[in-house]
Design a protein around this nucleic acid. Structure first.
Lengths: 203, 203
DNA sequence: TCGCGATGTTTATGCCGTTAACATGACAAG
DNA sequence: CTTGTCATGTTAACGGCATAAACATCGCGA
């Protein structure tokens, strides 16, 4: 396979319990690394398998297809995003300033994890919402939305509240996307200012 | 090629001046058709060529590569979007209500041309902004931004004005993207309400 | 000890974008 | 009218991709 003599794997740890150890985890880890370090990461099954020192089709023992692997990565990213927002909400304390801080955090997280955020929305756009599909993907996103709605302060009427939540989410998402697409340069002060325009004009 | 007898093209018009007539225009037209009628259009060179009744590599006489074809389609879409917004601005008259109407129009256009809007932003994200690249793509987008900024009413300080413009653009873009990704259902009344939250709170 | 199932490999199929070599046919120069 | 040239289109080929099927290997439990 690799050479005529010596052990099979080149430099890999010898304590591999199975053939590889834990290929699924290794693949996800490598995928997350690429999403974190590259702007347009190559997440092809062959490329991944190659750099994992494994044959081209080995990953099919752990994922039914490429989409499943991408979904798993997007799910992990969604979890991290929600976590960052929860931390920001706690750190800022409740109220209007806290809510604004959650929005700013969304944009900053997007800037720090551009490829991952893109993957998340690329994948979430392909799940069928009508079907009662409790796939982790849809559920995680429902959680994210719920989190936003819950942190929304104020004593508005339910309808106004829904509109305000949607407004806030749209604003930070659009701002993040425009920055990621290079349409506007990232300026933390500007981001904060733009987000606060809405939040602090409230009543 | 097609048969042993009769004319070469199956049912195509006989008045084709050249081999095909105008393959470039035909390819772009078919691409736009697919972008308009399909959610996830197949814009592969082979698929396009196949349905155009032409060999797989014929398009390379008119486009250096696939990206160039996609860029041409995105450029056309960008032009149509700008046109829609200009019309909306005129129809609504100036002032704050007119500006809000431009925003609503952006979202509605996105809903009516989802694949095309996606293509636009997918392509515009790949142009290098730093380089003095006066490619039609970058120029068209600068025009779009300028249009938004110009229609922005009010007598704010320049800095406030910039922030408000960015705010408005982010809001409608984010709203459009969330609808396209199926995160929120399209409701014209809700869209209008959400957009107006900002515009009309302006003192 | 043995075998079975999980994991990985090999091989193959059909798609894709892209290139190079060749064919065709419209139009201009002679 | 002839001829040549260039734009346009075709064929064949290369490498890469996702995926499937058949085969190989190894850990672990009966």
């Amino acid at each position: 396979m690799f050479g005529e003599e010596c052990s099979k794997p080149p430099i890999l740890p010898m304590n591999a319990p199975y053939h590889h150890g834990d290929l699924r985890a290794a693949a996800l880890e490598m995928g997350m690394e690429r999403l974190a370090s590259q702007v347009q990461p190559d997440l092809g099954l062959r490329a991944l398998a190659r750099d994992l020192g494994v044959s081209a089709t080995a990953l099919y023992r752990h994922f039914p297809n490429k989409d499943a692997l991408l979904d798993a990565l997007a799910l992990e990213g969604l979890d991290r995003l929600g976590q960052s927002q929860a931390e920001a909400a706690d750190a800022a304390g409740g109220g209007l300033p806290g809510f604004a801080e959650v929005g700013v955090t969304y944009v900053e997280w997007a800037v720090q994890h551009p490829a991952l955020l893109r993957l998340i929305y690329a994948r979430v756009g392909k799940v069928d919402l009508a079907t009662p599909d409790p796939s982790a993907m849809g559920e995680a996103f429902r959680q994210l939305r719920k989190g936003i709605a819950e942190k929304m302060p104020g004593d508005l009427a339910p309808e106004e509240r829904a509109a305000a939540t949607l407004h806030a989410w749209s604003l930070v998402h659009g701002l993040a996307m425009l920055i990621l697409d290079g349409q506007i340069e990232y300026d933390p002060a500007m981001v904060r200012k733009v987000v606060l325009i809405t939040e602090f004009r409230d009543s």
